[in-house]
């Protein structure tokens, strides 16, 4: 009866290295597209930082809410809003757009 050593020798005797012969190249050519997840990670990270800073920087939320109120009041009275109100408005739109784009790009 074959012992452990003989069985090991038997298997080792049949352990051949298989040459690549272009196999790896064919695999790489066949690979489907994969999107990198790094941009989503970076974008999500900075959005989180931005949101945290928004709420911890003293007076920032007050500034945002005052500017938004001023914008709404100006529009209500058919007046041209101030430059700072418009800036805040577009800033909020850009933030929401970035969040929406980020969410839409993530593979579920």
């Amino acid at each position: 009866m074959m012992n452990e050593k003989k069985i090991k020798e038997l298997f080792k005797a049949h352990k051949a290295d298989i040459p690549d012969d272009g196999f790896s190249e064919r695999i790489i050519r066949r690979l489907p597209e994969r999107r990198s997840i790094l941009p989503q990670i970076i974008m999500s990270g900075f959005i989180m930082i931005g949101l945290i800073l928004t709420f911890i920087v003293p007076g920032f939320t007050t500034l945002i809410s005052e500017q938004i109120s001023s914008l709404i009041t100006s529009i209500h009275h058919l007046q041209m809003p101030s430059a700072s109100s418009i800036t805040v408005y577009f800033g909020v739109l850009a933030l929401l757009g970035t969040i929406g784009y980020s969410v839409a790009r993530v593979d579920i």
Partner: peptide
């Protein structure tokens, strides 16, 4: 999504 990096893994483990 680095295909070159994956290619090196394939070369190492294809045999």
């Amino acid at each position: 999504g680095d295909r070159k990096a994956f290619s090196r893994l394939v070369e190492a483990y294809q045999s």
